[in-house]
Amino acid sequence: MKHNPATYVPIIDSSNLPKAAPRLPASSARPDEPWYRYLTIDLIWYVLGYTLFHPWTSWVLVLCLRAQLTPYDAVEMKIVSAWALLMSAMGIFGIVSEKIAYGSPREVDLAEEVIVITGGVEGLGALLAETYGMRNANVAVLDTKKVGEDEAEEKGVVYYECDVSDVKQVEAAVAEIVENLGPPTILINNAGIVHSKSILESTAEEIEQTFRTNTLSHWTTLRTILPHMLRESRGTIVTVSSVLGSWGAANLSAYCASKAALLAMHQSLRAELAQNPDAADIKTILVTPGQMSTQMFADVKTPSNFLAPMLAPVDVAKEILRLIERGESGEVAVPLYSRYISVLGVLPIGVQALVRRWSGVDKAMTTSKKVTSEKK
């Protein structure tokens, strides 16, 4: 007797199958914390941004008062109308300001892009690489850490063992990328190391290594990859700096200085691209995150969970992905304080000293046991 394969369903005796206890994902295996630990100034600002400070919501209040037949000359109607006009004006000003600063977005089709990520084996870089790998984009990672062929194939990422602080290694790796995948059109400069030592304890070799990896590697990758973008007349360059580049911290002098140099380099890059007619569709993104829960600062306790919450790499990655895929230039500054950290520099020096003391930024590294460098 023949069975129709379209209708035949085999019967399995489930009584003989082994029983397995349900297991939750590892991400849920974290200690319970009181509710207020999840309350941060960023959460409050996010909620206000979509309610009280949102133009559409502001006009809804006006409509609600009119639905109650509130006269136009009533005090409450004047207040909510003025507030709605102010929020609308601020929203329009923000749109116009970004248009003037960054211009029109470029078209991005991931199938036609070649993405190069430095330091993409762990941390933020790994999250970006694996996200694009799952979406079948052309992703190449430059890192000193090795990744097996099976793991690379599973993630959909091509890994090149490369020390980005070495000019010849970068040039050789990029030449392979061009041959295998095509000209790079998206560059995410993410590689970084840290030596958590004081100035007196740091050796000349450690300081040089920090600057070669955190700073000089950006020049190397730009000088190697930017010509391909200019020939393609399109591209996106992501510079991953740090909020500490604007503020500094004790026992992190080399790291902070190397990240501060990237802020000036990014501005110079934008100025040079603006003068090049072939760079009209080359976008730039500056990333200045606060403390992330990566291996680099894994054992450092944030001074204030309310004002300066610890960031998960996904919090930063989603903002980078949003700008890249919209084809826009911009800045990714999270958490909230990192957007306004530069304002502290214009305050009186005594106020700056008090802010540093209250923030605990100069004591944060005293809790760290790191004495050696780690990749992100």
Rank of each mutant, 00 (worst) to 15 (best):
M87D: 05
A6R: 14
N190F: 05
E130Y: 06
P303A: 03
V334A: 05
Y160Q: 07
P227M: 02
M265D: 00
A173D: 01
N251R: 04
Q295S: 11
V238C: 11
E206G: 00
P22F: 11
P105Y: 02
V243G: 14
A308S: 04
A101P: 01
P22L: 10
A173T: 05
L128A: 07
Y50N: 05
A298V: 09
S342H: 11
L142S: 03
I100K: 13
D362N: 12
Q68A: 13
L86H: 12
E201W: 02
I282K: 07
A152W: 02
C162N: 10
L244I: 10
V80W: 13
I95Q: 07
N138W: 06
Y38E: 13
I115C: 01
E272S: 05
G49E: 14
R326C: 05
Q169E: 09
F306R: 01
I92K: 09
V158F: 02
M292F: 05
R66T: 14
F211M: 01
R326Q: 12
F93H: 13
I225Q: 06
I349T: 12
A333Q: 13
T366S: 07
T224C: 14
V141A: 08
A204K: 13
G120S: 12
L187G: 07
V108W: 01
N4P: 02
A333G: 06
K376P: 03
E153H: 10
T215F: 08
D109Y: 09
Q267D: 15
E151W: 12
A264E: 08
V194L: 14
I41A: 00
R135I: 08
A74S: 10
M296H: 02
P303N: 07
G360P: 08
E206D: 08
A126Q: 15
I199F: 06
S104N: 15
R212D: 13
D143H: 02
V343I: 10
W56K: 10
R326P: 00
E325T: 02
A173P: 00
W45H: 10
K375T: 14
R37V: 08
D166Y: 08
A29P: 00
I92P: 03
A175P: 06
A137L: 07
L61A: 13
V141E: 02
E154A: 07
F306E: 00
M265K: 09
M229N: 09
S14R: 15
D299I: 14
L110W: 04
K369Q: 14
L63Q: 03
Y132G: 01
K283D: 11
I341T: 13
L17M: 06
E206H: 08
D32L: 11
I115R: 03
A280G: 08
A89W: 14
S304M: 04
G248P: 01
M1G: 10
N136D: 04
E171Q: 09
T118E: 05
V147F: 00
D166N: 11
A353S: 12
